[in-house]
Design a protein around this nucleic acid. Sequence first.
DNA 1: GGACTTGAGTGGTTTAGACCATTGCGATTA
DNA 2: TAATCGCAATGGTCTAAACCACTCAAGTCC
Lengths: 265, 265
Amino acid sequence: MGENLPGDAVENGKKSPRTPKHWELKERLAELLRAVSPGGSLPGERALASEFGVSRTTVRKALAELTAEGRLTRVHGSGTFAGEGKLTQRLQLSSYTEDMRSHGRRPTSSLLDARIGAADPELAALLGIRSGDDVLRLRRLRRADGEPMAIETSRLPLPRFPGLDRYVGDSSLYGVLYERYGVELGHAEETIETALATPAEAALLGNEAGALMLLLSRHSFDTEGRPVEWVRSVYRGDRYKFVATLVSPNVVHSSDVSGEGGREL
Amino acid sequence: MGENLPGDAVENGKKSPRTPKHWELKERLAELLRAVSPGGSLPGERALASEFGVSRTTVRKALAELTAEGRLTRVHGSGTFAGEGKLTQRLQLSSYTEDMRSHGRRPTSSLLDARIGAADPELAALLGIRSGDDVLRLRRLRRADGEPMAIETSRLPLPRFPGLDRYVGDSSLYGVLYERYGVELGHAEETIETALATPAEAALLGNEAGALMLLLSRHSFDTEGRPVEWVRSVYRGDRYKFVATLVSPNVVHSSDVSGEGGREL
DNA sequence: GGACTTGAGTGGTTTAGACCATTGCGATTA
DNA sequence: TAATCGCAATGGTCTAAACCACTCAAGTCC
């Protein structure tokens, strides 16, 4: 993160909160890391510990943060290696596939499972059906160049799309919705937040449990405003970032002054 | 995150990766937490350690993850308390101020500092000026109901806005740009990714160093496509989520089939 | 030659314990 | 009454050490 843009000195009015050892170590390791090309390897934890005169625990804490930031990749039993930076995905309308292609990546995605279950009250409300109605749940694993990137879980209301479960898997979900049910998507609402990987997610992504993730939820509606699907995707936070282009006739240039001399937007 | 939606059993084809103690403990604590209303307190680390028969280190690891997810708040010297959920901010055009207001929050923001420095080559390219030209750097701390939420660092090209530094602080930045320089914003490109808090950021946000953050960068252009500002904001990942509404005539309903039997978007 | 075993080296988990820094309250004091 | 001090409890940092799980290559066996 910070990369110490000039003038970022500590300078907080009160007390300087004494930088912990693991943080100082982290910066020294980051420096050491700049001399290593992506994929290059670092010394082992034990070696670093003795070299820098700290305990292995402290080394691990520093390495953990660098890993969470995507600057390191660690492989159990093998070693610690320099990371490769983040991929990006546009928000807005483009598809995962298109987007990866435009970055010269080879996108693939595999269906993990497709099953039918009963909607709980919350899910029923989201999908515009009654509690207990059937819901089709699809789980997909998305990859870029073969590397697992995200787990996507879609839920669709079966009462609205009877037999949908039989058409899934061999062609585009949105294609099927359009051709067999005449449904076109109109708008969607997405939220993005941070999350930590569950062990199951971590296993699928080749990740560690507790790793940083970007949690993206999408609630899609058709052109008439009826809910079509509810999607929850977890993306690897160390390998992914989202991009949105805000085209806007007039991005707020008048607005109220507020607060303590500050401003908004 | 997961909240164990039905059917999330481990079931990865190969080996079950034996759940670590700290994860199991985390789930037990999460359960224990459901019985506590927001703001309520939990037993101390040492008490939990002896109660569950694990070491304090393991307890801390579990608590750290719950904290990162915003489900816990920890206060040094005082105790551990139940969290209060996340606020949301729309992407798109609305302002921080508007958005907080619409959630019934009281938004404020204070100017931390305003200084002029020389642009490095990268920043110069972003702002459409020459390397070494003057750049105005504004740092603001944003709060909701008095609670620090984000640090926003804006950078503007002084050659394009001579004297801008003298007008800042007493009124809307965008208002000044419009009234004194005739600049209207046209579009912006935003990226969202995960990051970890630096000690300095943590101190300002009342956070821990290494805490989960959402890093949002905005690159704004005027109606003629010239760069106006470059903004880097770090939001507390445990207290914030972003929302985007994707209005769209036709969100992809035809597209190519690819990969291993899976599908895209 | 090919399949298997073994072991060294790596990261991952957990423990027990020490000490530090902050908080908040009760007792003491002015 | 009001301010101060001291102390106990809390979370934060760090250490040293043990053990586990995985990887990979060298060596062995068939």
